[in-house]
Design a binder for these strands. Structure first.
Lengths: 213, 213
DNA sequence: CGCGTAATTATGCAAGTGTATAATTTCTCC
DNA sequence: GGAGAAATTATACACTTGCATAATTACGCG
């Protein structure tokens, strides 16, 4: 009955921070920001709670770090697939596909988005991160649409491009949302199919037909 | 320095419950479900915390009641406008308009949606309410699209109707989301305009032109 | 008018919260 | 292999939380 002190292993600051951030994201997705307690996070990361204070000056800072980590990962996942691809149309298609397949479409991703929303609206730093990420998404989508329209010989004025980008972004967001909220309501590939068709219908571009190099 | 007991007025059970529910929705929108404390809600409703226990057997029950109240209000707001209208096309247009104007499009409505999501995913009763509301929305939209297509002499098979409803629902959801998240990013009426155009593009229906009775 | 009952307030409690600080252990470097 | 420093654990504290229960007050009804 010797209650010994817990053994531990020293890790690099980066590894520990990352582990803490991942544990934080898990718990935020499950229980919301307030439900992700310091003790719970420490337990999930297999560490005692004091260590969190050693790497993050407060829970607030840990939450902000976790949010930025998550947002960066989401943008990477969305844009990585079609970055290299050839025609603008192919890149637009890759963008739609990447946005509407796991792990972007995922109950956990949606839960994280919802859990963070409150803090995003109130905390200036998180608000900044959010607006930057959102603007990046939409600008990129608008550029893709502009290039694809130009490629098809039907360039559009700026005002029209803006509307098309908003509309396409909305379909993608909406499908992303529904796919995350009701994971079993859609067949494999159904979201991608609907997303492609909708973007095609809105922009007047044919996303299916293969390009002739 | 006589610390007197607080004066109060007796209210009907309905009025008190409603007041408590409204205060709850305010705080849930501002601080999330866990941030909406019993004491905070009581204060917002200008009442002491013990009274909450008198009308609701637990905070959980109050939260569930507030959620159902909110969802009912949202459906009423969305469907009330165009319920009576004439042609299917006009009713579809009214649905789009109602879904994309305040108070449906509103930062507070979005915040509520996000705040409740966690509980909706976990609590069976709230999940049931959510799925019922969602199904009601989409079925209604699908019926509107079906009627409008028939009206235009181009009926569609069931599978196609399902896809159109999912796509249109997604645009509307996405625009609703963006309008609530970035209230200042869109001009007056811009969301409605984009929503109408997108639904028109997806379904192939012209929503703008007036019907000839 | 006064009595009873239910609405409302007041108080208390145990559990959980973030954070601060002290005690210990692991590991690097000579 | 041992000393010093940093990583990690352990403990404590003040505060908040939901809930329970007792004390009071307002108001309808005779």
């Amino acid at each position: 009955m010797t209650d010994e002190r817990r053994k531990f292993k020293r890790e690099s600051a980066e590894a520990r921070k990352e582990a803490l951030i991942l544990a934080t994201l898990e718990l935020v997705a499950e229980n919301g920001v307030r439900g992700a307690t310091v003790r719970g996070i420490a337990q999930r990361a297999d560490v005692t709670q004091g260590l969190i204070r050693h790497y993050f000056s407060s829970k607030e800072e840990l939450i902000i770090s976790a949010y930025e980590h998550h947002m960066n990962q989401m943008t990477d996942l969305t844009f990585a697939p079609g970055a290299a691809a050839g025609s603008a149309r192919a890149r637009l298609r890759a963008f739609v596909d990447g946005s509407l397949t796991p792990p972007v479409v995922d109950p956990r991703a949606l839960a994280l988005w919802a859990s963070f929303l409150n803090k995003v609206q109130n905390d200036p730093q998180m608000k900044e991160t959010h607006q930057r990420t959102y603007a990046y998404f939409r600008d990129r989508l608008e550029a893709l649409i502009a290039a694809a329209l130009e490629e098809a010989g039907r360039p559009a004025p700026a005002a029209r491009l803006r509307q098309l980008a908003i509309a396409c972004n909305a379909v993608i967001d909406g499908l992303w949302l529904e796919g995350g909220a009701l994971p079993d309501a859609f067949a494999q590939g159904e979201l991608v199919e609907i997303g492609r068709q909708s973007v095609a219908a809105i922009t007047g571009l044919d996303l299916e037909q293969e390009a002739e190099t």
